[in-house]
Amino acid sequence: MTTPIYEARDISRSYGSVRALEGANFDVYPGEISALIGDNGAGKSTLVRILSGAEQPNGGQILFNGEPIQLETPTDARSRGIETVFQDLALANHLDPIQNMYLGRELMKPGVMGALGFMQRSAMKNEGKRAFSELGATVRNFSGPVGGMSGGQRQAIAVARAAAWASEVIFLDEPTAALGVVQTKGVMDLIRRIRDKGIAVVLISHSMPHVLDVADRVHVLRHGKRVAVMDAKSTNVEELVGAMTGALDGKEAA
């Protein structure tokens, strides 16, 4: 197997006397959907925040393309093509989908006009529509505020926005939570399209059927450590739950 595009080795993180991560490992390969599961308090969110640059570990090492790196801020991660969609989506409700896609990344007009704050609105609109269409995001209204859209539409916009900027890795934290059946299918199809572009996808989810449906490998966290790595095609819900709860000994990846 090739070198992981993104890897965490022996990551530790404490909050006072609480140890959220104790020697946690994780890796994902280009064009792979790697699921990260674990019970509440297992350390999933902490690990994702560290790998997205939102927090710094107390110990351990992060490698990108096999080289050690240090992330001080989320901007450091984004500069390497690593994007994250957290559960709160971080959408500006009063802006439309295109404005949300370019929020903080606006295309400014060249020269003095750009310095004065004038943007290339037509270019952003055309490129934004193309990106949404390419990823299969069923965005029907490009001019209305996202705050008035359905949960599925908002989720698709957040995922497609991240995918439009991600060139290497995208983390999706509970992307199907609180969605209906049809909306969930749309998001799952979107995840597959991102994978098919060669981008590594990390899916954090409590839904075992969804994990088994789209993931290539499943990483199980328990008590701040990775306790198992399973081939999604050769495991089942019972084994995953057993690894999460400690009822079943998992087999750690080499």
Rank of each mutant, 00 (worst) to 15 (best):
L107K: 15
R13G: 00
Y29R: 14
G41T: 00
E168Q: 15
M124Y: 08
T2A: 15
T2L: 14
P30Q: 15
D213S: 15
S133L: 14
Q120P: 02
R105T: 05
V214R: 02
H223N: 14
M230Y: 01
A131T: 13
G144D: 12
R195P: 12
S34L: 12
E22F: 12
W165L: 11
Y15H: 11
A253G: 10
G43D: 03
L240A: 05
Q99E: 15
V220T: 04
P57Q: 08
I82K: 03
A215D: 03
W165S: 09
Q120M: 11
T235W: 00
F142S: 05
M119H: 09
H94K: 09
P74G: 12
I50G: 09
L172W: 04
A178Y: 07
S34I: 06
I50Q: 06
Q183T: 03
A35Y: 03
R19T: 09
K109C: 10
S52H: 05
V146D: 05
K44I: 00
L172A: 01
Y15E: 02
E32N: 10
K125R: 14
A160H: 03
M124G: 08
L135Y: 02
A160G: 05
V227T: 04
D216Q: 08
S207E: 09
A200Y: 13
D27L: 08
S79G: 10
M101P: 00
D88P: 03
G41L: 00
S79M: 12
E22H: 14
F132D: 06
L116P: 05
D216A: 05
A228S: 08
S167C: 12
K125V: 07
G114Y: 01
L172K: 04
L240N: 02
A158Q: 07
V211E: 03
R222I: 02
L135Q: 05
V218L: 00
G81Q: 10
K233S: 11
M230H: 01
V48W: 04
T84K: 04
F132R: 05
D96T: 13
R19S: 10
S205G: 06
I194S: 03
A177T: 13
E174M: 01
N58E: 14
T235R: 00
G53F: 09
G59I: 04
S143G: 11
I33W: 00
V187F: 00
D189S: 13
S34K: 10
N141F: 12
A232H: 01
E134S: 15
E32T: 06
M101S: 03
G31M: 07
I157R: 02
L135K: 08
P4G: 01
L51P: 01
E22R: 15
H94C: 06
K125P: 01
A177N: 13
A115N: 08
L95H: 08
